[in-house]
């Protein structure tokens, strides 16, 4: 596929929204890939963590539909090892927030497995809802 890069998009609303929510400079990422190399959830993700950032750097909001932010466990390994100090967990959360603002909840309280409600530490449920509920 070919995309006509819109110069306005490079300074446009999508980048500004991510940067406002995450307080991160997307351009600091040089796509070294270390985040993806160490991410424990890449096996399930459709896009690698560094692949999520690249279209965003170009102002393309296609990544909002990716499953990757919802598979992020916020383990913070990416941020710990990024040579440029990019706080990728915050960018992932910004993408989650944007996806929720544009669409539906990803975690619904009523759908939580009753076994979890009975036995799991409640911080798991509260944490999941805070991340995934509109």
């Amino acid at each position: 596929m070919r995309v006509v890069l819109d110069p306005l998009a490079l300074h446009g609303a999508f980048i500004r929204e991510i940067e406002a929510i995450s307080e991160q400079n997307l351009l600091a990422c040089n796509q070294c890939g270390r985040c993806s190399a160490g991410c424990p959830l890449v096996e399930e993700m459709d896009l690698l963590p560094n692949q999520i950032i690249r279209p965003a750097q170009l102002g393309l909001d296609t990544v909002v539909d990716s499953t990757s932010p919802w598979l992020c466990a916020a383990c913070l390994m990416c941020e710990a090892r990024c040579p440029k100090g990019v706080d990728l967990p915050r960018i992932m959360d910004a993408l989650r927030q944007i996806a929720l603002r544009r669409g539906e909840s990803r975690v619904v309280a009523g759908d939580v497995d009753p076994a979890l409600l009975a036995g799991a530490p409640q911080m798991a449920i509260v944490g999941a809802l805070r991340r995934g509920e509109k």
Binding site: P40, L41, E43, E44, W70, L71, A73, A74, C75, M77, R106, V107, V112, D113, L116, A120, A124, I125, G127, A128, L129, R131, G132
Partner: peptide, 19 residues
């Protein structure tokens, strides 16, 4: 120091189990 899966136990239980 690798993740156990954390809150994915709620939202992505298969991935959580793997970790």
């Amino acid at each position: 120091a690798e993740c156990c899966g954390s809150t994915l136990v709620v939202s992505a239980p298969g991935a959580n189990r793997r970790l």
